[in-house]
């Protein structure tokens, strides 16, 4: 278990009476961080956790105007306005971003992975693909080349 955070630091750093790691005995009191420590030690015993469990928002980021928004992650927020602020801080710290969407996670409906077989193509669907069509091949032209045929129609 961890030591009691409220315990005196000097005594806590020497468990079982051992003089452990002596080079850490440096005095720390020169900045607000360390001044806050004294306060923290006094306040800590009364600490009561009072966090809130806000709803989850899914975040979608657009890198460039005109492009798709892409899902980048999720955050907690009490409302959409705060969600947009937190989304910016969490996902748009660097890299391109021109627009963010947030939506309550529970507003998203998804298919079940269990049903992923509905997406499996049971028949040949090559007819839906550009690669499924060959266009004009020499073997399909009888007697004339493409060039002469084109010339013939233009006159």
């Amino acid at each position: 278990m961890y030591g009691d955070p409220t315990a005196d630091f000097e005594s806590d750093s020497k468990p079982d009476g051992q003089d452990a790691m002596p080079h850490y005995s440096r005095e720390w009191n020169f900045d607000p961080y360390h001044q806050a420590m004294a306060f923290a030690r006094r306040r800590a015993p009364d600490h009561a956790s009072a966090d809130t469990e806000w709803r989850v928002w899914e975040v979608f980021q657009q890198a460039k105007r005109g492009e798709h928004h892409a899902h980048v992650g999720s955050i907690h927020a009490p409302d959409a306005e705060v969600a947009l602020v937190l989304a910016k801080e969490n996902f748009a710290r660097r890299g391109a971003c021109v627009n963010l969407w947030v939506t309550p996670a529970d507003a998203i409906h998804a298919t079940d992975y269990e049903d992923a077989d509905v997406f499996i193509h049971t028949t040949d669907k090559l007819y839906r693909e550009p690669a499924g069509f060959q266009g004009l091949r020499s073997s399909r032209i009888q007697g004339s080349s493409r060039t002469t045929e084109a010339k013939g129609t233009s006159t």
Binding site: Y2, P5, T6, P15, Y24, A36, R43
Partner: peptide, 14 residues
């Protein structure tokens, strides 16, 4: 029992 466990946690808590 590390050199700064208590201090770090106290600050986190604060």
């Amino acid at each position: 029992g590390g050199p700064l466990n208590a201090e770090r946690l106290a600050l986190r808590r604060l």
